[in-house]
Design a protein around this nucleic acid. Structure first.
Lengths: 340, 340
DNA sequence: CTCCACGTTCAAACCGGTTTAGTCAACGCC
DNA sequence: GGCGTTGACTAAACCGGTTTGAACGTGGAG
């Protein structure tokens, strides 16, 4: 198998210099039309393709974005957000042949991963997701000089450009709907405290209750997991005055909650209304179908990638983007509050 | 902010040549101990880190593996396999600072993505998953000279190295268990025909039935999706002689099946036993808990990455690996066949 | 005392692109 | 006819590493 042709081969074949080839291929001025045609023909003839590595070295660009997933090993695999998000990112950067470097790591090693990404210039920029309180990453990105876009609310980014998709309206709508249906004891099973989006969802629930003049129902941790959702639901249903509705931090916990209710003989929605978040593919086909909220993960990925492009192009302004908020999707898992 | 130090800076600081620095840093023979110490001190002093791009160019290695997910947009996000698989891959290649390039594409553009990966040498090799019948990728990899490892059964690889994890034993065990429980009408809701693993699962089910001398129950397509699983279940339960047990191609379809059974008032497991595949986090917390099969996706990722390492090291022999087969996990979703 | 081998170090070439500075011929103008 | 300008092209440097071939100083053998 012959060696892959380089620019020098193309130059020889076209009878010009390497510089001319480079200029012609990159469509820069100062090259005669017929010369350019000759070069392009030679390149096509030899089947030349650019070497990403050589181009990366001379341009100082990696041609890739980075995404670091920081999860405890056992939490990996429970997530429905990332595949769609990644698909969105790819649809933007794949156009021009760039790629997405995905790293999976643990909280302890997280900082080291970013440091290496920056030091070795393995990526041109990174997308930050799952922001935590006092997240060390925005200042770290600044210190490392690593371009970054935050996927989340503007105030989480510490000044970094953000691409936000508000989940508050969906929670408010869910709580209002439950109140309309007569519910007065509306509980919340929250996600991991350290995550800002989990916290934000809890605040949205609290605020909606306050605005409606309803008492703040019990809150239990559900950890965004099936196990946590099941445990929390068990506890809630064992209370003297159990809630008549539970709003969960995500679908996984809510689905587990549905099962627990059934196991305990608590009919849904007759005695308990249930709301999730994420609109996972399964929610529509649970029994009863789970009320949830739809956030466009794919569109979020697209927007985040475009925003990072804008940052790299020096246009920070265009990198602050707000997407349409998540939408509450009522289904049969909610119903009128029980009479007694 | 100062420019990132290069090898030339280190050389100047240590009072040696660039070549000596390179040799010292790479721990090669022919460098005096004290010189090496001086170089390392200088490098640490300046905070030098290698440039991945320069190294890639001179070594002709990209320092990354590729993983291409070929999915129709709407199927993205329904998958529980990849996050864990990716975590496994990362745990192997992340050690040495290499990364995983993830591309998401459609069937139409698939070939082009691989071609570009190969042409631009963006990755050192690729992992092939979700093999289809007459999959064009193994011959394509050969033609492109792109090192590859097939994630699946040895006979799927067209001679390429494979890392296999057999799901047959789990299906056989499930069917045998159901037969032991007295079931005689055992149906199957299969995954998309074009996938070899979906087909293999169906064959495993067929063969187990044959060995047990049981009639081959009805088979319906479920497409590995919740929607497909729900529809297939509805059809099966509407038959004159509905099956008393259904074995699904994956958990998503099985969970949807559970819900449909409930909706139709068919108690599980009293009148219908249900078996899934994947052991998703949610299965343990469905009602009743779903019998499934556990495949170690993370371990699979680790093995696949190691195998690709072996291929790149020229050791094709070490790249054929068989992992422990998937294990059947019986739970409360199966029970004795109904009497009538 | 000379010669050779060895351990150590270095200058220079190389990987495959991009970019700068400069050459050269054709052209228009006074 | 001399001169500056312009357009087309090229030689050479550059990005930041790795690797080759040769040079150098030293010690031991003859």
């Amino acid at each position: 198998m012959a060696r892959k042709p380089t620019i020098a081969d193309v130059a020889r074949h076209a009878g010009v210099s390497r510089a001319t080839v480079s200029f012609a291929l990159n469509d820069r001025p100062g090259i005669a039309e017929d010369t350019k045609a000759r070069v392009l023909a030679a390149a096509a003839d030899l089947g030349w393709t650019p070497s990403r590595q050589a181009r990366a070295l001379s341009l100082g660009k990696a041609g890739a974005f980075g995404l670091v997933l920081t999860r405890e090993p056992e939490q990996i695999g429970a997530d429905l957000f990332f595949p769609a998000f990644i698909a969105g990112v790819e649809s933007v950067i794949g156009q021009r042949g760039d790629g997405l470097m995905v790293h999976v790591t643990t909280p302890e090693q997280e900082q080291g991963v970013y440091e290496r990404l920056a030091a070795e210039r393995q990526v041109d920029g990174v997308l930050l997701t799952d922001l935590r309180h006092d997240d060390p990453r925005p200042p770290l990105m600044r210190r490392l000089g690593l371009p970054a876009v935050v996927v989340g609310q503007p105030e989480w980014g510490g000044g970094l450009p953000t691409v936000s998709l508000d989940d508050e309206p969906a929670y408010s709508a869910a709580v209002r709907r439950l109140a309309d249906l007569g519910h007065r004891r509306i509980a919340h099973v929250e996600g991991p405290r350290e995550f800002r989006h989990a916290h934000r969802r809890r605040l949205a629930w609290e605020q909606a209750l306050r605005e409606l003049g309803l008492p703040e129902g019990p809150v239990l941790p559900g950890g965004f997991s099936a196990e946590g959702g099941a445990r929390a639901t068990r506890e809630l249903l064992a209370l003297d005055a159990p809630p008549t509705a539970i709003v969960y931090g995500n679908d996984l916990a809510a689905m587990a909650g549905l099962s627990v209710a059934q196991e305990l003989g608590v009919p849904v929605p007759e005695r308990l209304s249930v709301v999730g978040y994420d609109d996972a593919p399964l929610t529509r086909y649970s029994y009863p179908p789970l009320s949830s909220a739809r956030a466009d993960a794919r569109g979020w990925g697209e927007a985040a990638a475009s925003a990072l492009d804008a940052v790299l192009a020096g246009d920070e302004g265009a990198a602050h983007v707000a997407l349409p908020p998540a939408e509450f999707i009522p289904r049969a898992s909610i119903g009128p509050a029980p009479r007694d």
